[in-house]
Design a protein around this nucleic acid. Structure first.
Length: 829
DNA sequence: AGCACGCCGACT
DNA sequence: GTCGGCGTGCTC
C-alpha cells in the first residue's frame, strides 16, 4: 500500500532535467519531464528536445531536479531514447572536468565523445501538400522550381533547395509556400544506429526423425529438386557449424531465394532474425599467452609493478624496438585477471592490423578496437560493448578515452610524446595523454606511459619522482641500434656528387640495400611536389586566396594546393604579375622526391606515404601490406613513416633534409627534431640486422644531430631544460594561449591590443603578446596569439582559468569585440 | 549549430 | 524599390 502511494507521489512530482546539447553553447538548458516519463528520466540517458524555433536535438540528461526554473517556462522533453543510460555518471564528471580544464563547453566535449550515430539531430524535410490543389501559374519562378522538383522527388531537405535555387536564403520562400498551403514542412529525428540483422535457418525438429526426413526428401526430389538440394546442403552445413545463415545456405546450395522461402512456408525450415556484431572476432576466439620476456624486460616489468604500489603513473622509457609491447601485454593480462578494464592508447597512425592482430592473439574476443576509420555503426557497437563490460581491453586512438568504462584498472599511453594526442580543431583542444591520467585517477586506476623519446613534461615528472621511472636501454633480441651517418649537403654540392636531392652516401647505401633485397625508407617532412612556385623575373609567388601561405604545387593533380584550407587552383604557365614564362619550383616535398628517384632508379618499386596517398579508407593498410610483402623497395613519406612501422627488411633510412625540422621557429623544435629523428631511425634494422641511417643536412655540426648520433636523450634533456627554465617554458611553466581572429586585420589589431590589456590587468607580465602567428591568416580570418605563462607552483591554474573566462566574457560583451572569435588553447603544442 | 531579424549594397 | 547577403542575438 505504501509502495503504491510512493509511486503515486512520484508520478505527481514535476521533474526538470538539465541537459547537455551537442552544440558549442556556453550553458546547459532545462526541460520539463512529462508525468508519464518521470520513471524513465535518469541521468545519462539521451532525450530528444526542441531547441530554438524548430530544430530537434539529442541531449544528455546531466541532472534532475524538482525545482521549476523561475525566469522562463521550460519546454517539455519530447522523448526519452534509452532504456538505460548510455553515458555513465563518471563520464559526465569527466566531461565536466575536460570542459573546465580545456576552457570549452560541455556540448563541445559531448560532440567529441559520443559517436555521431548516438547524437541524431533533426532535419527539415519539405513535401508537397497532397490535400491541396493550387494553380501553378500563380507561382513565381522560384516557387515553381521547388514544386516541380517535388513532383519528381517527394521529399527535399533545406540544403537540397539551397542547391536547387543556387542561393543561401531559402527560408522566406519556404515559409510563403507553407502559408499558401502548397507544401508541408516536417522535422524528424530517427535513430541512426541500426543493429545488423542476419537470418538464420533451423530445421523443423519433426525432421530430426530419419523416417520423416526420408519421406520429405523423396517428395521434394520429385516435385522441387532445388529445394531438395537446399535441404541436403543445410544438413551438410549444420553438421559442420553451430548455426546456418540464410545467405550462406543460398550461396552453398545454388538454390534461389525462392526455394528457401517456400521451404520456410512449408515449415520445413524455421527462419530466425538475429542481431549480429559488425566487429568480427566473436567471443570464441581463444587467448593464449606463451612468450617469455627477456631478462631486461622482466626486470622492467618488475620495476613497473613496484612503482605502481606507490605511484599512479609510471613512465617506461625504452629505446626503440626494446619490446615495450610485450611488457604492456603482461600488465594487461594481470589487470584483466583481476576483472578490471584496460585501455591501451596508441596514435591513430600506429593502429594498423599488425598491432591489432598481435593483441587479438592474447586477448581474443575480449579486446575492442576504436579508431577513426570505424564507421558510425561500428563505433556504437564498441561503445555498447564497453558499456556492458563485454570488452575488458580496448585498443584505441585519442578519442577512445571517451568510451563508457566502468572500472578502468590500467591505462597505457604508448608513444606518449606523440603530438597527435593533442586535438586542435575543433574544440575540445584536449590532450588525450593528460586527460587519460585524470580519467585513470577517477577510476582509481594506474597509468603507464611508454616512449623511446619521452616528452619533456613527462620526463620531468618522472625525474622529480612524481611519476615512477623505468628505463629499458636494451633492444629486444640483442639487435643493435642503427649506425647513424651524417652527410653534409653543402660539401657534396661543392664536390658535385649530389644527384638531385640525394647525396652519394645515401645513393650508395640505397643501392647496397636493394642489391641485398632489403628495403629503404626515405623521410621528407613535406608533402606535395614543391611548396613554392616563384617567378624568376619578378619574384611573384602564388598565394592562397583564403590564407596567408604560398600554394604548394602537386604534380599528381597539376594544381596548386593550399595545405591550410584545401583551396586548389590551376598552375599558371605564365606569371600572372609580369607575364614571364620563367616560373620556378622552389623547395621540394615527398612527391618530388618520388618523382626524381623514379628517374634515377627506374627499375625500383617506389611508394609514397603521406596525407595525399592515405586519404581513402584502406590506402594506408594497402601501402603497409605491400611493404610487408616486399612489393615496395623504397617507401618515401612524411612523419607518417616514423610511426609504428615495424618491418624486418628495412635496413636503410634516409632523412632527405634534416634542416626543415631543426630550423622550425618553436621552443620545442629541438625536442621535436630529436624525437622525429630518433623515431625514424628506430625503424631501421630490427630483428637481426644492424640498420643504417643517413641524415642529410646543411648543418652537420648541429647539436641535436650529435645527440641523435649518440642517442643521448639525457644530454638533449639537460641542455634544453636550461633554456626552458630561463625562458619560462614548460615543463617549468604552464602555457595557455588564446587565439583571437577577425576578418579585418585593423579591427583585429585593436581588439587584440585591448583584450591583451584587459588580461594584463589581472595577470601582469604573465601575459605575452599579442603576436601574429607564423601563418597569420587562415580561411579568411586574421589571427593574433596571446600567450599566458603560469608558474607551476604557487599559482592556482583553476582560479586563473576562471578569471580568464570572466575576462573573455567581459570582452565579448563589449561592442569592441564585434565579429571576433576567441579560442583558448590550454597546454598548446 | 540554426534560425529570425535588421541593415545595406546591387540590380531590373 | 526589392532581393539577397551578411552580421547579431537567442535558444530552456
Amino acid at each position: 500500500m505504501l509502495e503504491f502511494a510512493e509511486v503515486q507521489l512520484h508520478n505527481r512530482k514535476t521533474l526538470f532535467v538539465e541537459v547537455i546539447l551537442p552544440l558549442a553553447i556556453s550553458r546547459n538548458y532545462t526541460y520539463r519531464v512529462p508525468f508519464e516519463m518521470n520513471n524513465g528520466a535518469v541521468v545519462g540517458k539521451r532525450v530528444v528536445v526542441q531547441f530554438g524555433k524548430s530544430k530537434l536535438y539529442t541531449a544528455i540528461i546531466e541532472s534532475i531536479s524538482e525545482h521549476a526554473p523561475e525566469k522562463y517556462e521550460a519546454k517539455y522533453i519530447i522523448e526519452i531514447l534509452d532504456d538505460a543510460p548510455v553515458v555513465t555518471s563518471r563520464q559526465l564528471q569527466f566531461w565536466h572536468w575536460l570542459a573546465e580544464y580545456y576552457m570549452c563547453n560541455e556540448g563541445e566535449v559531448m560532440n567529441a565523445a559520443l559517436p555521431s550515430a548516438l547524437k541524431l539531430a533533426s532535419e527539415t524535410k519539405v513535401m508537397l501538400n497532397r490535400e491541396y490543389e493550387y494553380d501553378k501559374t500563380q507561382l513565381n519562378d522560384k516557387e515553381y522550381l521547388i514544386t516541380e522538383a517535388l513532383d519528381i522527388q517527394p521529399e527535399l531537405t533545406v540544403s537540397d533547395i539551397v542547391k536547387l535555387l543556387g542561393q543561401k536564403t531559402v527560408m522566406p520562400i519556404l515559409k510563403s509556400l507553407f502559408e499558401k498551403n502548397i507544401i508541408t514542412i516536417s522535422e524528424e529525428v530517427s535513430e541512426r544506429y541500426k543493429p545488423r540483422k542476419k537470418t538464420y535457418i533451423t530445421l523443423n525438429p519433426v525432421y530430426q526423425n530419419p523416417d520423416n526426413r526420408r519421406e520429405l526428401f523423396e517428395i521434394l526430389e520429385k516435385r522441387a529438386p532445388k529445394q531438395a538440394d537446399a535441404l541436403l546442403t543445410y544438413l551438410k552445413l549444420s553438421r559442420q557449424q553451430k548455426a546456418v545463415a540464410k545467405n550462406e545456405l543460398i550461396e552453398e546450395s545454388g538454390a534461389g531465394e525462392s526455394s528457401i522461402k517456400s521451404l520456410i512456408e512449408k515449415e520445413v525450415f524455421f527462419a530466425e532474425h538475429k542481431t549480429v556484431s559488425r566487429l568480427g572476432y566473436e567471443e570464441d576466439d581463444e587467448s593464449i599467452s606463451n612468450f617469455t620476456l627477456s631478462g631486461a624486460q622482466q626486470l622492467a616489468l618488475d620495476e613497473a609493478r613496484l612503482h605502481f604500489e606507490k605511484k599512479d603513473v609510471v613512465l617506461l622509457h625504452g629505446v626503440t624496438a626494446s619490446g615495450k609491447t610485450q611488457i604492456y601485454i603482461k600488465l594487461i593480462e594481470e589487470m584483466v585477471a583481476t576483472g578490471r578494464q584496460v585501455l591501451y592508447l596508441l596514435p591513430e597512425i600506429a593502429l594498423t592490423t599488425h598491432i591489432i592482430e598481435r593483441l587479438r592473439i592474447y586477448f581474443g574476443g575480449t579486446i575492442g578496437v576504436y579508431h577513426s576509420r570505424f564507421n558510425d555503426n561500428e563505433r556504437v557497437e564498441v561503445w555498447q560493448k564497453v558499456l556492458r563490460s563485454e570488452y575488458k581491453v580496448v585498443l584505441g586512438a585519442r578519442s577512445s578515452i571517451f568510451l563508457p568504462f566502468h572500472d578502468l584498472g590500467l591505462l597505457i599511453v604508448d608513444e606518449e610524446h606523440e603530438t597527435s594526442y593533442k586535438q586542435y580543431d575543433p574544440a575540445p583542444r584536449y590532450n588525450a595523454r593528460d586527460a587519460a591520467i585524470y580519467l585513470a585517477n577517477m577510476h582509481g586506476g594506474k597509468v603507464l606511459l611508454g616512449s623511446a623519446t619521452p616528452s619533456f613534461e613527462t620526463y620531468y615528472n618522472a625525474r622529480t619522482h612524481k611519476y615512477g621511472l623505468v628505463t629499458l636501454t636494451e633492444r629486444y633480441g640483442g639487435v643493435q641500434l642503427p649506425l647513424v651517418e651524417v652527410v653534409s649537403i653543402s660539401k657534396e654540392l661543392k664536390q658535385k656528387t649530389m644527384q638531385s636531392h640525394f647525396t652519394s652516401v645515401l645513393m650508395a647505401d640505397m643501392q647496397l640495400a636493394l642489391e641485398n633485397k632489403e628495403q629503404v625508407i626515405l623521410f621528407q617532412n613535406r608533402r606535395g611536389y614543391a611548396p613554392v612556385l616563384m617567378c624568376r623575373v619578378c619574384a611573384y609567388t602564388p598565394k592562397c586566396i583564403n590564407c596567408d601561405v604560398s600554394l604548394t604545387y602537386h604534380k599528381h593533380t597539376t594544381k596548386l594546393h593550399c595545405h591550410y584550407c584545401g583551396y586548389k587552383e590551376d598552375t599558371p604557365s605564365v606569371c600572372p604579375a609580369c607575364g614571364s614564362t620563367h616560373l620556378e619550383y622552389k623547395g621540394f616535398g615527398t612527391e618530388k622526391v618520388e618523382d626524381e628517384l623514379s628517374v634515377l632508379m627506374p627499375d625500383v618499386r617506389l611508394a609514397r606515404m603521406d596525407l595525399d596517398t592515405t586519404r581513402s579508407r584502406n590506402s594506408l593498410q594497402t601501402i603497409l601490406n605491400n611493404l610487408e610483402e616486399k612489393k615496395i623497395d623504397i617507401l618515401i613519406g612524411t612523419q607518417m613513416v616514423a610511426k609504428g612501422l615495424d618491418f624486418a627488411d628495412v635496413t636503410v633510412i634516409g632523412i632527405i633534409n634534416a634542416d626543415s625540422l631543426l630550423k622550425y621557429p618553436d621552443y620545442r623544435a629541438n625536442e621535436r627534431s630529436f624525437q622525429m629523428l630518433a623515431q625514424v631511425s628506430g625503424r631501421a634494422g630490427r630483428r637481426g640486422k644492424q640498420g643504417k641511417v643517413v641524415i642529410q643536412t646543411y648543418d652537420p655540426g648541429h647539436r641535436v644531430i650529435k645527440q641523435v648520433i649518440e642517442n643521448d636523450y639525457a644530454d638533449l634533456y639537460f641542455t634544453e631544460m636550461e633554456e626552458r627554465k630561463s625562458f619560462k617554458y614548460p615543463p617549468f611553466f604552464r602555457i595557455i594561449s588564446i587565439d583571437i581572429k577577425h576578418k579585418n586585420p585593423e579591427i583585429l589589431y585593436n581588439q587584440a591590443e585591448y583584450f591583451t590589456n584587459e588580461l594584463r590587468k589581472h595577470f601582469g607580465d604573465r601575459v605575452i603578446g599579442p603576436e601574429a602567428p607564423l601563418v597569420n591568416r587562415i580561411r579568411n580570418y586574421y589571427i593574433k596569439t596571446i600567450m599566458l605563462k603560469f608558474e607551476r607552483d604557487g599559482v592556482s591554474v583553476v582560479k586563473a582559468k576562471a578569471l580568464m573566462r570572466d575576462v573573455i566574457t567581459q570582452f565579448q560583451t563589449t561592442k569592441l569585440s564585434k565579429g571576433s572569435v576567441v579560442q583558448p588553447d590550454v597546454d598548446p603544442y
